[in-house]
Amino acid sequence: MVDMSVKIGSVTLQNPIMPASGCFSTDLAQVIDLNRLGALVAKTVSREFRAGNPPPRVSEVEGGMINSIGLPTKGIEYFLSHQVPDYKRFSPPLVGSISATTIEDFEAMARDVSTSAIDVLEVNISCPTRDPKGGNFALHEEHTFNVMRRIRQTTDKPIWCKLSPNAGDVVAIAKSAELAGADALVVSNTILGLKIDINTFRPAIGNKFGGLSGPGIKPIIVRMVYQCAKAVKIPIIGCGGIVKLEDVIEYMLAGASAVMIGYLIFRNPSGIIAIIDGLQEWCAKRGFARVADLTGAMIDEAPRETYAAAAAPIG
């Protein structure tokens, strides 16, 4: 038997496979058994009602999709009174995700959402489509530090900081979040992109810019996970473009302790369960007694053949 459990700081997950915020809700119980998941990750909430961005909100692009949902939410009160009890019908730990535009509001949100029903607080400082220009806290070291420090001082819950791949130096942001007291990093949110409709000459989605997700972004995010894992001691949760078992293994080898899956839920909703089963089988076959042993197991040296080929005389 493979031990599939992983520890993210003080939280133990039954397996490292979680859905990504915004791509998951209890509505998914229509098609899969939610009790199989490592954790339940709620859609980001903000304090007040937000309608979100104008439709169309998605468009297909090669390698995935571009979205500008714009964080629609019924607000924190509705979240706590209606959505949280609904999540509690299922057994995996519940990760609540919060967003705000000021540090003060982030602090207040963190306090209000830290109820006994919430196991982890994910701090979404990286949604690229909430601000039409794509800006957010996670683009700046000091903003990241200040907001995470304030939240750390406010709540005893484990806090996971969701980073943005749009930051110039993601590793520096990762270090600020760690220094401020984050318990784990989620690497990462979507990459800001643009798609143009060649029939209308207009942006393909209502908000003009949108967040790119899906398999096209995976190599970029795997690289970021690898770099962050070398730079911080706190656990990292890999997120971006996972569509098959091999992708999860890559993320873990790069240094992720667990992963989150978004796009695949749209593409193959049963795939997330297939990956959990597949990961266990793969570990058994490769002789890993604990899935956690995969984390950071990547060997840095390039394949030997590379050297052999390079050493061979040409011509």
């Binding site: 915004g22 791509c23 998951f24 809700s25 509505d27 998914l28 229509q30 098609v31 859609k43 979100g52 439709p55 169309p56 909100r57 998605v58 979205n67 949902i69 629609p72 839920i265 749209f266 909703p269």
Partner: peptide
């Protein structure tokens, strides 16, 4: 998604 979570 066609399932409810994404609000597209």
């Amino acid at each position: 998604c066609g399932l409810g979570p994404c609000y597209v």
